[in-house]
Simulated scan of single mutants.
Amino acid sequence: MSAIKKIYKALPESIRDTALVRTFGLFKVPLLFWISPTVVELSKERCEVRIPLNRKTKNHLKSMYFGVLAAGADCAGGLAAMKLIIESGQNVSLAFKDFKAEFHQRAEADTHFICNQGKEIADFVTKVVESGERHHMPVEIVAICPKISQEPVATFTLTLSLKNKSKKS
């Protein structure tokens, strides 16, 4: 086992998951790296990602820029699937087919993006890994600013689109 893998395995899981997201961002989606997401929870049931409200993420009204809110929803909606795909060892492409958002109030503090469909996503990834077909699944994300209120500042529906490219159909 390489030294990097040993270090990675020695890290607490929450730090490991944050490192996964930020490394992916650094090399594949620089905006994710730039906005500094932190994985609060990644369990079989739930994914919660926090994005800080700071100079890089706020708009002229001093609330979170809607593009950053969209990136947070993308991150929370795709992280559970991404981790399961990595664990499967298969070459599965992950994309979002569409994106729907409702903005309810300004996000004026650090914002948490929560997806409670972990079990459904795990079943979905298993279905895709066993298939050579592209499959789609709607994923619901709620954004809250817990320092202010538990009321949603935004809700999102993203259609997760996966295909196992390792398997011939």
Rank of each mutant, 00 (worst) to 15 (best):
S2N: 14
S2K: 14
I4D: 13
K5P: 02
Y8I: 07
K9V: 03
K9T: 05
A10S: 15
P12K: 14
I15E: 12
T18I: 11
A19F: 15
A19I: 12
L20C: 08
T23R: 14
T23C: 09
G25F: 14
L26C: 09
F27C: 08
F27N: 10
K28R: 14
P30E: 02
L32H: 13
F33S: 08
W34S: 07
I35G: 10
S36T: 10
P37H: 13
P37V: 06
T38A: 12
V40K: 15
V40S: 09
S43K: 12
K44D: 12
K44C: 03
E45F: 02
E48N: 00
E48T: 04
R50Q: 09
L53I: 06
N54G: 12
N54D: 14
R55W: 11
R55S: 07
K56A: 05
T57H: 03
T57G: 01
L61T: 09
L61I: 08
K62Y: 12
S63R: 07
M64S: 07
Y65T: 03
L69M: 15
A70E: 01
A71S: 15
A71C: 11
A73M: 00
G77Q: 03
A80S: 13
A81M: 04
S88V: 07
S88M: 11
S88E: 10
G89R: 08
S93P: 04
S93H: 12
S93Y: 11
A95E: 08
F96E: 05
F96A: 04
K97F: 08
K97S: 06
A101S: 12
A101W: 00
E102V: 07
E102Q: 15
F103D: 00
H104I: 04
Q105M: 04
Q105K: 15
A107I: 02
A109S: 15
F113E: 01
F113Q: 01
F113A: 00
N116T: 14
N116E: 13
G118V: 02
I121R: 00
D123S: 14
F124C: 02
V128F: 09
V129H: 14
E133A: 11
M137V: 01
P138M: 03
V139S: 02
I141G: 00
I141Y: 00
V142W: 06
C145I: 08
C145W: 01
C145S: 10
P146T: 02
S149T: 13
Q150W: 01
Q150M: 08
P152K: 05
P152G: 02
P152F: 06
T155C: 05
T159L: 01
L160R: 08
L160D: 09
L160T: 09
K163D: 03
K163W: 06
K167H: 13
K168M: 07
S169T: 11
